[in-house]
Design a protein around this nucleic acid. Structure first.
Lengths: 197, 197
DNA sequence: TCCATTTGTCAACGATCGTTGACTTTCTAG
DNA sequence: CTAGAAAGTCAACGATCGTTGACAAATGGA
């Protein structure tokens, strides 16, 4: 066993690039065609290598998917935000995540497969519980942060579905400003709106 | 060829029941596991029948899915509704469709497979264009009915995803009253709210 | 240079899938 | 009652899939 290959910054060894190529191809194809729709052979072809290598580097398709479906929304930065602008802030971050220059297919991977793959569904619920919920809890009564975060997620997830996966024409056509202007207030009300109405 | 087997009310012939059993099993399994996840053999087993019969009655899996994925939201009845209550009315109808006593798995079938099956996606876009959009167009300026209906769909579709497919605990826990109270105003604003804000 | 580890290639396995065709059983009209 | 159509059974096909193991090439330290 090699005790030094893990997390050690001094190994840009030959194989690491292949490994990265596989993972990149996997993320792309999983995001585009879902878990079932993207075969290991497809991933291998996209990475210009042999299918057997995919299994060699990642032990199985499940494990490859687990490695590919890592999502970091980078939401903690929003904790210090004005609670009066939390709605707009969330939509802007949403657009950044899905369309920003540094955006990966991370969320697409999960959302594309979550409807028919229990692992992806569980992972998506994790993202909700560990990343979205805390942000909402920080700007409202933590007691019903779950309910509020759930409503926020329903709107954002639905928007992502319609715009990026289902590609509903009128939703695709919406400009960033329109989305911020229309959806922002909704999230604002869900996140910090009065309880009684 | 038999010219009288179509739409003629006088034929509860032996085979029609089997046909119905197959289709019922198919609707159930497609709704639960998606297009890829539900095999013809599964459907046959659920209908206590031979897999070959499924192909005999419906010509292929695609055709079976097409027959199973028929959705009628029965929304035209809402056309005469008060535009001040369109939001609440839509949420109530939404809950009726998904949880009502006479609710079938229709929408679940489409939504479950729409992320990784282009036919299901197209069918879902059809439901939007031919069933949701006209209702919104009837209560607002038809010129931007598409945009408004798109926003309405994003919220309702996201709610369905979180509550029925992803089963996000806090969203599952929401009572009907809470949903009506929280989501109703959102739809109201999307459907007939002022343009400028 | 030589050898051991790494990296890549190739063919095949067992399983599952949608689909087909030949066959037998059941039902029904004349 | 009997012939023919309808309904159902059975085994197999070709294709695709995830996965494996045996083998060849490349690499890098001694």
């Amino acid at each position: 066993m090699n005790f030094m290959t893990e997390n050690q910054p001094k190994k840009p060894s030959k194989s690491d690039r292949t490994r990265a190529q596989i993972l990149e191809a996997a993320r792309l194809l999983f995001a585009e065609h879902g878990y079932d729709g993207a075969s290991i052979r497809d991933v291998a072809a996209h990475a210009s290598i042999d299918p057997a290598m995919v299994i060699r580097y990642f032990r199985s398709k499940d494990e490859l998917f687990a490695r590919a479906a890592v999502v970091d929304l980078q939401l903690p930065a929003l904790r210090v935000i004005d609670r009066n602008a939390i709605g707009e802030t969330l939509v802007r971050r949403f657009l950044e995540i899905w369309e920003g220059p540094a955006s990966g297919p991370g969320m697409g991977i999960l959302l594309r497969s979550a409807t028919s793959n229990e692992f992806a569904a569980e992972k998506l619920r994790d993202v909700f519980g560990n990343q979205v919920r805390p942000v909402v809890a920080a700007v409202s009564d933590p007691a019903d942060a779950g309910r509020r975060a759930g409503l926020v997620s329903s709107q954002l997830l639905g928007l992502a579905m319609c715009r990026y996966l289902l590609r509903l024409p009128p939703v695709v056509a919406l400009s960033h400003d329109e989305i911020i202007q229309k959806v922002g207030p909704t999230l604002q009300r869900y996140a910090v709106g009065e309880d009684g109405s």
